[in-house]
Design a protein around this nucleic acid. Sequence first.
DNA 1: GTGATATTGCAAACCTATTATCATTAAGAC
DNA 2: GTCTTAATGATAATAGGTTTGCAATATCAC
Lengths: 128, 128
Amino acid sequence: MKSQRKTRQRKAIRAAIESAGRPLNAHEILDCAGRDLPDLGIATVYRCLKRLESEDFICRVEIAGQAARYELAGLHHHHHFFCDDCSRVFDVPGCGLAALNAPEGFAVREHEVVLRGLCSECAPATAL
Amino acid sequence: MKSQRKTRQRKAIRAAIESAGRPLNAHEILDCAGRDLPDLGIATVYRCLKRLESEDFICRVEIAGQAARYELAGLHHHHHFFCDDCSRVFDVPGCGLAALNAPEGFAVREHEVVLRGLCSECAPATAL
DNA sequence: GTGATATTGCAAACCTATTATCATTAAGAC
DNA sequence: GTCTTAATGATAATAGGTTTGCAATATCAC
């Protein structure tokens, strides 16, 4: 087994994800972590994400038509909100799903709920 | 404005979508419509889908990590089920969503619910 | 049937997210 | 500090779905 080294890059990437409070994609992470490490490369971000995911430190959040996003693993069951304006993804606490309605014979293993609309920052601007 | 011609290809593609009873992606449509028209090309399928969508005859169904699927437009509100085994997408009647839970200030315009698991055909096989 | 042209099929081109390559850099055990 | 080698950054390469270019074909108004 190869040892892991604590690099500035990994620290910055982990910090970005931990402090975001919402799922980030590779570029958002690059932008965020890149503020401290201007030379940070996108390849490093992807490599690090892959590793963090295999270590179950983060989990992937996939939204149709969007690049994969990542957030801390182990959060309480929740769903996501996609802002049509700024394309940011936010966590929606809890689960509003009351019934599954799957057809007879279908075995549901998991479910996803994605709300779409305008986040609190974009809603006012668009409403004007 | 250019007139539209009724070609065998378009008829076969529309028929495939109308008779499917579930959302199909370009390749599924090619396979299905291709049974009657062996020479049908994937480019024609894409061109036709684009047109049918702009005419609001069909609507796009997007599922994370999957190629776009299409189904007849104007169906009653419903959601989708993705089979982890055969990768087919099925319609789930109704909507089990009781609450949206969007954060304060967020404006929800629409929502998607995707169930994942095994369809009735794949569930028994896997359960053995 | 004839002719104008919308449509097709094939293949090459695109696009965008992600991965691999590889020379260079820098952790960290000694 | 030295050395081994894991990790990085820049860039080329992938991969898959989708689009486009173009010559050949088929629709349909006449």
